[in-house]
């Protein structure tokens, strides 16, 4: 039933179960690359429920998720004498939540990166997420959810979310996967990977994450990209340096270290390390 390449930890699963049982929005935080967005897609898939995705940007307004009144089209139509102009309902564009609320099946709604939006954004959605209904002022209707959808909200911690909003959510912090879980994740993606290569790659990867002062720590997706390259080149495991302490830049490090300063930092560390060995 579950797609094989998404590994869900027990804690996370329990969080989703609770959110489903109590019909509360689930707020997910965690380091980039821990699969926050993927979770909603996966849950929708496993529940066989329709998924409505709302990717939030800095310019996104709360009402865009409900509906939008397309005044410009109406203005244009009025100049042209279109008949449609008389019914305001023709110019109401449905948003993500509208579609999810009116879905006949229990839907999964993903509000992705809610912290990117304006600071007032979460507050503007309080009532809608709490009561799962909203008013359309232009047509004076009330849209109420037939079945309360499972709302999954992700945040990258760029802005703090208001307390009132947090009170209404369940909160789960996805930790960075430990070695074991990471092993499972990799195996799910590349079932044919050579285990010794995987092991030394993982060692390099976790060592790299430990390097102090890296601007951007490599995340899961970077590890997967890197492994893809390694596998494509069919490198033997010892190509990554078998000794405990790293003395060379790992092969294809471009997939792991995405910024020049980090590469320099790493090179410096290696240099220092070599000096110490002498």
């Amino acid at each position: 039933m579950s797609t094989p390449d998404y590994i869900i930890t027990d804690e996370l699963q329990q969080a989703v179960d609770a959110a489903l049982a109590l019909e509360r929005p689930l707020l997910i935080k965690g380091e980039p690359g821990t699969g926050k967005t993927q979770l909603a897609i996966e849950v929708a898939d496993r529940l066989d429920a329709p998924l409505f995705q709302w990717h939030v940007k800095s310019t996104t307004r709360a009402h865009q998720g409900l509906y939008e009144y397309d005044a410009v089209s109406r203005l244009r139509d009025s100049q042209l004498g279109d008949e449609r102009v008389k019914d305001i309902g023709n110019y109401i564009l449905h948003g993500v939540l509208w579609d999810a609320f009116t879905s006949d099946q229990r839907a999964v709604v993903l509000i992705d990166e809610i912290d990117k939006a304006d600071i007032e954004f979460p507050n503007d959605l309080l009532q809608e997420l709490d009561r799962m209904s909203f008013n359309v002022y232009e047509t004076r209707e009330t849209i109420t959810a037939k079945l309360r959808p499972l709302v999954i909200i992700t945040s990258n911690n760029e802005k703090e979310l208001p307390d009132a909003f947090l009170r209404r959510c369940f909160f789960h912090y996805i930790e960075f996967p430990d070695k074991e879980t990471m092993g499972n994740i990799v195996n799910a993606h590349y079932p044919t990977v050579k285990q010794d290569l995987l092991k030394s790659a993982m060692d390099v990867f976790f060592d790299l994450r430990e390097v102090p002062g890296l601007k951007k720590k490599p995340s899961t997706s970077e590890l997967l990209d890197w492994l893809k390259l390694l596998i494509a080149d069919d490198l033997p495991a010892d190509a990554l340096g078998s000794d405990e302490l790293r003395t060379v830049l790992p092969k294809m490090h471009g997939a792991l270290l995405k910024n020049e300063q980090d590469v320099h930092l790493f090179e410096r560390l290696i240099f220092l390390h070599k000096q110490r060995q002498r």
Binding site: Q14, A18, L27, F171
Partner: peptide, 25 residues
């Protein structure tokens, strides 16, 4: 949640569920 049998029966599960409910940071 507890009345709906979420997060009961095991202290570990209760721990996770109570954290989910109560702690938002």
């Amino acid at each position: 949640g507890l009345s709906k049998d979420v997060g009961v029966l095991d202290l570990n599960r209760f721990y996770l569920f109570s954290r989910l409910c109560l702690i938002k940071d």
